[in-house]
């Protein structure tokens, strides 16, 4: 328990001037902003944004669909030979509602669905939903 103290009374203008000096001393410090498109920010190792899918590893267990809090993940039928995925269903992701909670990555038993650092997903598009095949591709390879 400590009682906070009010600042001491001073001669009026002195405080104003010292406040002005505190403000203006930062003019000699370096700017902290990053010039984004030219200069990429240094992202921490664990930074994650886009969801990727390894089609060969996916077993179609629908756990990611169940755990997704926003129902951004839906299972789609994909005609693809994969002995581990008998039902031939794979998740698609609607990035319009995805909150990047990473629950799908946590729950996936085969580590087929995972998130990675790629975050520049802005482009002209018709839909925010990535089909399973598109989820398997790198961002610059996906064409909408």
């Amino acid at each position: 328990m400590i009682e906070v103290k009010e600042p001491k009374k001073k001669i009026p203008v002195v405080g104003l001037i010292s406040g002005m000096l505190t403000v203006s001393k930062y003019i000699f410090k370096k700017p902290v902003t990053v010039q984004y498109p030219e200069q990429k920010p240094e992202l921490p190792d664990r930074f994650r944004f886009r969801i990727f899918l390894k089609l060969d590893d996916c077993v179609g267990c629908t756990l990611c669909e169940q755990v997704c809090p926003n129902h951004s993940i839906n299972m789609q039928k994909v005609d693809r030979e994969n002995p581990r995925n008998k039902r031939k269903i794979y998740p698609d992701v609607n990035f319009g509602t995805c909150t990047v909670c990473r629950n799908c990555q946590e729950i996936c038993p085969t580590e087929a669905i995972y998130l990675d650092k790629e975050f520049e997903t802005a482009r002209t598009r018709n839909s925010f939903t990535y089909s399973p095949e598109e989820l398997a591709l790198k961002e610059n390879e996906v064409i909408k």
Binding site: V23, Y26, I27, P31, V32, T33, Q35
Partner: peptide, 10 residues
């Protein structure tokens, strides 16, 4: 520019 530098912007 002055405002930016005081606030550590460019």
């Amino acid at each position: 520019k002055y405002m930016a530098r005081v606030q550590q912007r460019i």
